[in-house]
Write a protein that binds this DNA or RNA. Structure first.
Length: 742
DNA sequence: TGTCATTGTCATAAA
DNA sequence: ATTTTATGACAATGA
């Protein structure tokens, strides 16, 4: 296994920054323990390209982490089944590649903006990343997942200011719609209450604390980073400190609106009041909403300002302030738009939907003491969807909607409402990892392609470099090798033939000793290459810095026919080649090493030893040869290392971009899912009201909503039961998901 | 002249 | 134990 330490030092930092950018609270511990290869890949991915053997190993390791994106068909969007699957898909973040691509195209304008980020990608790390990460943790920590998410949204905008404006109007509209829906559904005050958020935050904290130090560090760092970035990139306002106030203002605003006679304050409420689990669900729901809202805030700084600066007691302005400039108009239009989106579904019930809710709400409102969470809670805790579809209750409604709605709605409400919502929440923090993994996997694949290309570079290097750039050691002379070489140079070389470089081992065999002049000359030549122009053997020295060059090409360069060169061009070439000749090559010549540096460096150990054994080499020569070999190998290693590093950075950059895009896309999808969900809720609510309103007791009188409620049984039947019983059952039902969550 | 990027080298750890 | 590889750090070099 790779040493995590190393990668935690540099790689983890980058990785954390990356994750923080995309708004994922990273449980590094989890990563390290269970998904080490991906992490390693993220950090090291490209690097493996330069080590063939390890590369393959890594590949093999990574193969196990392939993620199979699930294809999501968005066509039948309003089909409940579809919706459910989509919601689930969203939860798992299994996004088909094709869809991603398509989305990218669609998203291009925005992507282009974020694409500008890469330019600052490197700067990002140095300018804000490190500082911010290590910077003081701004007091207020909305560690709550959604909050963190939203922060990251802001972060997105902050890191790349363009991204803030980057969100298309469509996005904003979606968010606005969502916000509207949120309000329409009636957001519980508690949902927005900061203390509640704090609660979740604490829980989250605890979870994080359970992890390793890096884990917490990553989380904090990410948050801190996000916060700082937020401050940087946006209008300079301190969002963190603003949040509490913001939340409070929202809290004030939302309930006031929700209290107004709307659908949710209907018959359903009795089941909900006094229940706890629905509340939690509702809270999560609202948290999701709040995410969108946060995004909206991020997008429209001005809007957010207005929104949050609005007096708490002024619901209208606050609620509509999301569209600050044209609050009411936008609100209306958005509302209509949202309704229009589901009009096709609603058309069936439109009469009831139009009329019933108003009437019932007005009458029933007293029964429901302004519990804004009632609607969501009701649906969440009790599967009321089934209430509307029993044929005996309502023939018309059943006829029209029966085939389609009963099943999907039941399923939707059952699972989507109870589980998916929470899952969606979880998905925000945990579910993203798979996406990341998949994306990174894809990245790696692409990288692997690149790296494969470059992966043969080492070999090419080994074969080629030796001839060209393998020589080096000169005045660096820090070690014994240098001293030895220098001493040898003093001794001088004799009969250093010009073709020694090109000579085969046998030919050069026996060449020992050298003239001091030559050695000195050589050493000087290193300083002043022009002096070496008279040395013919230098011509053959090709210095190749193209690390990825094919070995054969380099080899050919290694053995240019000396006889073909004329004197004029010879000198030129000599100069040129001499400049390219490395110090070690000079030294090798000075020491009359009878074989090329290429061989010295790139020969396998056995062959290398064989080669050495063929010659009578002095201790100094052997030392120099060993140094040349060592340095040459290290040189290549350094080159690979640097390249790897660079690739890593670039890949991280790309990852950040991709993840940002993904995040935006997922948010978008989430908004749409939530919208659909809301429509379903409304549908169910209206159906409930309709059904309930048509029920008559033995005396032909309607049942009082305050005394009776429709209860959806597990077997699909619907019962009309007294409210007290309904409450009990609701309580019982809500306990389940709660326990499940823990 | 100072700065920055590139490259080579060394030391060291790890494989 | 030896060799190879990876990488941080430093220095030299040139733009």
């Amino acid at each position: 296994m790779l040493s995590l330490k190393k990668y935690l030092t540099e790689g983890l930092l980058q990785f954390t920054i990356l994750l923080s950018l995309i708004g994922v609270r990273v449980d590094v511990d989890t990563y390290l323990t269970s998904q080490l290869p991906p992490l390693r890949e993220i950090i090291l991915g490209p690097s493996s390209a330069y080590t063939q053997t390890q590369f393959h190993n890594l590949r093999n390791t990574l193969d196990g982490y392939g993620i199979h994106p699930k294809s999501i068909d968005l066509d039948n969007y309003f089909t409940a089944r579809r919706l459910l699957s989509q919601v689930r898909a969203l939860d798992r973040f299994q996004v088909p590649t094709t869809e991603v691509n398509a989305w990218l195209v669609h998203r291009d304008p925005e992507g282009s903006v974020s694409g500008s980020q890469p330019n600052s990608g490197l700067a990002l790390e140095s300018s804000s990343g490190l500082q911010d990460v290590t910077g003081p943790d701004n007091g207020v920590r909305e560690s709550e997942t959604e909050q963190g998410f939203s922060e990251d949204l802001e972060d997105l905008g902050a890191v790349a200011p363009p991204v803030g404006g980057d969100l298309t109007k469509e996005d904003i509209d979606l968010i606005d719609i969502l916000w509207r829906q949120d309000i329409d559904l009636g957001a519980g005050r508690e949902v927005f209450d900061y203390s509640h958020r704090q609660k979740e935050q604490d829980v989250d904290k605890e979870l994080q604390d359970g992890g390793e130090r890096e884990d917490t560090w990553a989380g904090e760092g990410a948050e801190a980073l996000a916060r700082d970035l937020l401050v940087d990139g946006e209008t300079g306002e301190s969002f963190p400190t603003q949040f509490p106030a913001d939340v409070s203002s929202i809290t004030e605003a939302v309930p006031s609106e929700s209290e107004s006679p709307t659908l949710q304050n209907s018959l359903l409420s009795p089941l909900l009041t006094g229940t706890e689990s629905p509340f939690d669900l509702e809270q999560q729901w609202q948290d999701l909403m709040s995410i969108m809202e946060m995004q909206a805030m991020e997008v429209n700084t001005s809007a957010s300002e207005i929104l949050y600066d609005a007096p708490p007691g002024d619901p209208l302005s606050t609620n509509y302030s999301l569209a600050p400039h044209t609050p009411i108009n936008q609100n209306v239009s958005l509302h209509q738009a949202s309704l229009g989106g589901c009009s096709q579904d609603f058309s069936l019930f439109s009469p009831e939907v139009e009329s019933l809710p108003v009437a019932s709400s007005s009458t029933l409102l007293p029964l429901v003491p302004s519990n804004s969470t009632s609607l969501n809670s009701t649906f969440g805790s009790t599967n009321l969807a089934g209430l509307f579809f029993p044929s005996q209750l309502n023939g018309t409604a059943n006829d029209t909607s029966g085939p389609e709605l009963p099943d999907p709605l039941g399923g939707l409400l059952d699972e989507a409402m109870l589980d998916e919502i929470s899952l969606m929440d979880l998905a925000i923090e945990e579910g993203f990892n798979p996406v990341q993994a998949s994306q990174l996997e894809e990245e790696f694949d692409s990288d692997s392609g690149l790296s494969l290309d470059s992966s043969h570079s080492p070999s090419s290097l080994s074969s080629s470099e030796g001839s060209s750039s393998s020589s080096s050691s000169t005045s660096s002379s820090s070690s014994a090798s240098s001293s030895a070489s220098s001493s040898f140079s003093e001794e001088g070389a004799v009969g250093y033939s010009s073709d020694s470089e090109t000579l085969d081992l046998e030919e050069a065999e026996g060449a020992v000793g050298y003239q001091p002049e030559y050695s000195k000359f050589c050493r000087m030549s290193y300083q002043d290459p022009s002096q070496l122009s008279c040395l013919p053997y230098l011509e053959h020295v090709g210095h190749n810095h193209t690390y990825n060059m094919a070995p054969s090409a380099l080899d050919s360069a290694d053995l240019p026919p000396p006889s073909t060169l004329k004197k004029g061009s010879k000198e030129k070439q000599a100069d040129f080649l001499d400049k390219q000749m490395s110090r070690d090559e000079h030294r090798a010549r000075a020491m009359k090493i009878p074989f090329t540096n290429d061989k010295i460096i790139n020969l396998p150990v056995e062959e290398f030893n064989e080669l050495l054994s063929k010659y009578q080499l002095s201790e100094a020569q052997l030392s120099l040869i060993r140094d040349i070999r060592r340095r040459g190998k290290n040189k290549m290693a350094a080159q690979n290392c640097r390249k790897r590093k660079l690739d890593t950075i670039l890949n991280l950059e790309r990852d950040v971009e991709d993840l940002q895009r993904d995040k935006a896309r997922l948010l978008r999808e989430k908004v749409e899912f939530l919208r659909s969900l809301r429509q379903m809720k409304q549908k169910v609510q209206s159906l409930y009201q309709e059904v309930f309103g048509r029920l008559r007791d033995e005396n032909g009188r309607p049942y009082s909503p305050s005394q009776y409620a429709l209860q959806y049984a597990g077997d699909g039947s619907v019962l009309l039961i007294p409210r007290t019983m309904a409450d009990q059952q609701a309580r019982r039902q809500e306990r389940k998901p709660k326990d499940r969550r823990k």
